[in-house]
Amino acid sequence: MSFREEHELHKRRFGRNLGVALVLVSFIVIVFGLTVVKVTRGDYEPENASIQRGQ
């Protein structure tokens, strides 16, 4: 037995919260993905790092 009546307002809030959650999760995935791409391509490596590795 439910103590709280499900109102249309709750459905609307749930949809909005779910949307915000998906946006935030997508943002995390994007930042993580960009970090992986940038780091593996060596965008943030110091210029002398490659020289040191070559020695």
């Binding site: 307002l9 609307r12 809030r13 949809g15 909005r16 779910l18 949307g19 915000v20």
Partner: peptide, 15 residues
């Protein structure tokens, strides 16, 4: 009533 309570749907913000 929706505006007064600030209970827009996600689609309203997307619009």
């Amino acid at each position: 009533a929706k505006a007064a309570h600030g209970d827009a749907e996600f689609g309203d913000y997307f619009a």
